[in-house]
């Protein structure tokens, strides 16, 4: 398994990093919120840590720490526009349930 990005997402990520002026890729991760939920994180990466896993999809480097990987392995990252909002969307095959607002989930 791996983490992949859609073409649209790859395009955006490349542009965001270029605009930012530095960065080797983006970090996908999860943060636990107790036993009942997880939340995604999405950050620029300037430095790769020793316990990071690096994936490359459409020439974009995606960095995931090993603890997070089990929860998001197989995830496809897309960039979409929904009404007013545009942003990155996670399609995560591990998710069993999302909370009301969709920001935390369980696996």
């Amino acid at each position: 398994m791996a983490i992949t990005v859609t073409e649209n997402a790859a395009l955006r990520i490349a542009r965001f990093i270029k605009n930012r002026g530095r960065g080797v890729g983006i970090r996908l991760g999860v943060k636990t919120t107790g036993c009942s939920g997880l939340a995604y994180k999405l950050e620029f990466v300037d430095e790769i840590n020793p316990d990071d896993e690096v994936f490359e999809s459409l020439e974009v480097k995606i960095i995931v720490d090993k603890k997070s990987l089990q929860y998001i392995d197989g995830t496809e990252l897309d960039y979409t526009k929904e009404g007013l909002q545009e942003g990155f969307k996670f399609t995560n095959p591990n998710v069993k349930d999302e909370c009301g607002c969709g920001e935390s989930f369980t696996v």
Binding site: K31, A39, F44, G87, K89, E103
Partner: peptide, 21 residues
């Protein structure tokens, strides 16, 4: 899923449910 933006390292607000319904 909520649509996310790329944050600066360590800057992302990670607390879900601070969101108002």
């Amino acid at each position: 899923m909520a649509l996310l933006q790329i944050a600066e390292p360590g800057q992302q607000e990670l607390q879900p449910h601070i969101k108002n319904i």
